[in-house]
């Protein structure tokens, strides 16, 4: 197909108002318009299905009918850029964040960010977490140490009780009114086989983001303490090491190399 034909075909695929693309030749006597609309419908329904599969908690929160309308609007504007359907909807959270009329469920965009991160974590590269013994062997200039985090690690920050809402809508916790509407940051990771979602302690998000950005342990702890006065380094190291989030230690000599 020429580029122009492809563009016309793609446009007709997304917009029912356009009818079938020109020069569509039927292989049998049937009307191509009708058969094309079946194909168009299948494309839309399957992409909506891909979103429903990837964002089950968001779907549960607003209900199937509402979610499907949201998905339909997204699908019409965002054709897939890859045949890998598990990654379809990577920018669905941005779409949800800008969608009108969601004021009462303003946390919905963050839920979709968390769910998108879970899928990415699930398909992220495998890596062996460092055992605690690797840290016990560390001595000397601890403050200059840099850490390589597991490829699956993502931090999702939120101004809402994100982890509680997600847990209630993914079968991890019982559904009910949320008395404490304080912000929660989430950690998503898959150190081994299972994807975990954890609520980060105060300053934990800043700590992890700094470490992931290549900051030294001391700098990362400093930035976390600056953001949250209650930042507890021991608690965060327990999460970091016990949670299997570190895959390599870069000592000061190597870490300072460009």
């Amino acid at each position: 197909m020429s580029a122009a034909t492809e563009t016309a075909f793609g446009a007709a695929l997304r917009d029912p108002g356009r009818g079938a693309p020109a020069h569509l030749a039927p292989s049998s006597g049937r009307r191509p318009e009708r058969r094309f609309s079946v194909y168009r419908n299948n494309v839309a329904v399957s992409l909506m299905g891909a979103l429903a599969t990837r964002f089950p908690a968001a779907r549960r929160i607003v209900g199937e009918a509402f979610f499907d309308e949201l998905a339909r609007a997204y699908v019409a504007q965002h054709p897939p850029r890859s045949p890998l359907m598990m990654m379809y909807g990577d920018d669905f959270p941005e779409f949800v964040a800008q969608a009108p009329g969601l004021d009462e469920v303003s946390y919905l965009a963050d839920i979709t960010r968390l769910e998108a991160a879970r899928t990415r974590a699930y398909h992220a590269a495998d890596a062996d977490p460092l055992p605690a013994s690797a840290f016990a062997a560390l001595d000397g200039a601890l403050d200059e140490v840099r850490l390589a985090l597991h490829p699956s690690v993502e931090v999702v920050r939120s101004g809402h009780p994100l982890v509680t809402i997600w847990a209630m809508n993914s079968g991890e916790a019982e559904l009910g009114p949320i008395a404490d509407w304080s912000p929660q940051d989430a950690l998503v990771c898959r150190p081994e086989l299972d994807v975990f979602v954890r609520r980060l302690p105060d300053g934990g998000a800043a700590f992890l983001v700094a470490l992931a950005g290549g900051a030294t342990l001391a700098d990362a702890a400093g930035r976390a303490a600056q953001e949250a006065r209650s930042f507890d380094l021991t608690e965060n190291l327990i999460g970091l090491i016990g949670g299997g989030l570190v895959v390599a230690i870069r000592p000061s000599q190597q870490g300072d190399a460009p």
């Binding site: 929160i61 607003v62 209900g63 009918a65 969601l102 009462e104 809508n169």
Partner: peptide, 27 residues
Amino acid sequence: DYQGNAWKAVAKGTCTTMKTPKGMGSL
């Protein structure tokens, strides 16, 4: 299934159960 962009749906999910500072989520 593929029909326009009119949002006919009203949210009937769990957002009505989780009380939020902004209301009950009855969109």
